[in-house]
Design a protein around this nucleic acid. Structure first.
Ligand code: FES
Ligand code: FES
Lengths: 151, 151
DNA sequence: TCAAAAGGTACCAGATTAGTACTGATTGCG
DNA sequence: CGCAATCAGTACTAATCTGGTACCTTTTGA
C-alpha cells in the first residue's frame, strides 16, 4: 500500500492538465471532460483545492477555476494536503486524542513525527511542473536529493 | 490521510519493542502481551516480517522470533514494504496493467514514479534505532493520563 | 509421544472511501 | 430585473478495503 487515494490522483491529474493553460479559466464540466473523471467528483475536488488556496474560483456565470500559482511553485505535498488533509502517517504524532491504540506501552510516542517530516519534505521537493517535464527528457537518474530526514 | 495502516504501525511498535532485547527470542504471545496488540494480529504481522527477512523464526517448541539485523540497520521503509507491499503511491508507476483509470489522457504517466522514489528515499533514512533514541533525549512527559483507550 | 509455537488459509464485520444527489449562493448578461 | 450558468455546501448511499478472528497444519524440543 502506501498508495494515496484515487481522489488525490485525480487532483494531481486535473491540476497537471490545467497547468498547461494557466491563462484560461476552466469550468468543472470542462475539466471533467478533459480528465475523464466523473463531474460530481471533479466538482468536489475543485472545491477542496480552491479552499486550500491552490486554485482561484470565480463564482457567477462564465466563472470557473484557475491555478493561483505557477506549476513549479505547487508541490504535490500541497495537493495531497488539500485533498487528504495534513500529511501524517500515523495517528500518534504529537497530541492527538486517540492514538494508535497501543500508546500506553509504546516507547516511541513522538518519533513518528520524524518519519512524517521526512516524507513531507520529500513530497515538497516534487512540484507540479516536475510531473510534466520528464515526459520529454526522461533521463532521471536521481530525482530527489535525499530530501527530508532533516531530523 | 497519507496515514499508513494500523498494521504497519503495529509492526513498527513490535519491532521497536523487540529491538531492546536482541538476544532474546520472543514468542508471538509474549509480543502480544508486551504491545497490547491482539495475538492473532501479532502472529500475522510476525509472519510477514519473517517472510521479508526482517525477522528470523524458529519453529518448534520453545521457538520464537528475533530480529535478523541491528535496529539501526532496519529502515522503516523495509518494514512498510514488508507489511504493506512495495512502496508505490499510485497505480500508474511504470507498466501496471490497470492504471489509475484516467491514464488514457494523462500527460504524466510515468512521473508518479518520481514521487514514489522521493518518498521511498525519505523513508529509508529513518531506521528503527531512530525511532527510539529521541524518547530519551526529547524529554517526553508521561502522556497517558487520559482514560484508557484499549482497556 | 506430547505440547508449544510457527505457518497458512479462509472468513466475517466494521470502517472508510468513492461516488451521487440535492439544494443554496453568487454573478454576468440579455 | 430576471434568468441562467457556475460555484458552494451538505447529506446520503453503495462498494471496497482493512482489521480482526477462527481453524487447521507443520515443525521440533522435552
Ligand atoms: S503511540 Fe502509536 S506508535 Fe507509539
Ligand atoms: S496514469 Fe494515473 S496519474 Fe497518469
Amino acid at each position: 500500500m502506501f498508495k494515496l487515494n484515487k481522489m488525490t490522483d485525480y487532483a494531481v491529474v486535473m491540476m497537471a492538465d490545467m497547468a498547461r493553460m494557466t491563462d484560461d479559466m476552466r469550468t468543472a464540466p470542462q475539466l471533467a471532460e478533459a480528465t475523464g473523471v466523473p463531474l460530481p467528483t471533479v466538482s468536489k475536488l475543485l472545491k477542496n483545492l480552491a479552499n486550500a488556496g491552490l486554485m482561484q474560483s470565480q463564482r457567477g456565470a462564465s466563472g470557473g477555476y484557475s491555478l493561483s500559482r505557477a506549476p513549479e511553485d505547487i508541490s504535490v505535498a500541497e495537493i495531497i494536503a488539500a485533498v487528504e488533509g495534513p500529511i501524517a502517517l500515523t495517528a500518534c504524532v504529537d497530541g492527538s486524542p486517540d492514538q494508535c491504540g497501543v500508546e500506553t506501552i509504546c516507547a516511541m510516542r513522538g518519533n513518528w513525527d520524524k518519519v512524517n517530516r521526512a516524507v513531507r519534505g520529500a513530497l515538497e521537493q516534487v512540484t507540479l511542473a516536475d510531473m510534466m517535464v520528464s515526459a520529454f527528457e526522461f533521463g532521471i537518474p536521481a530525482p530527489a536529493e535525499r530530501a527530508g530526514a532533516a531530523s
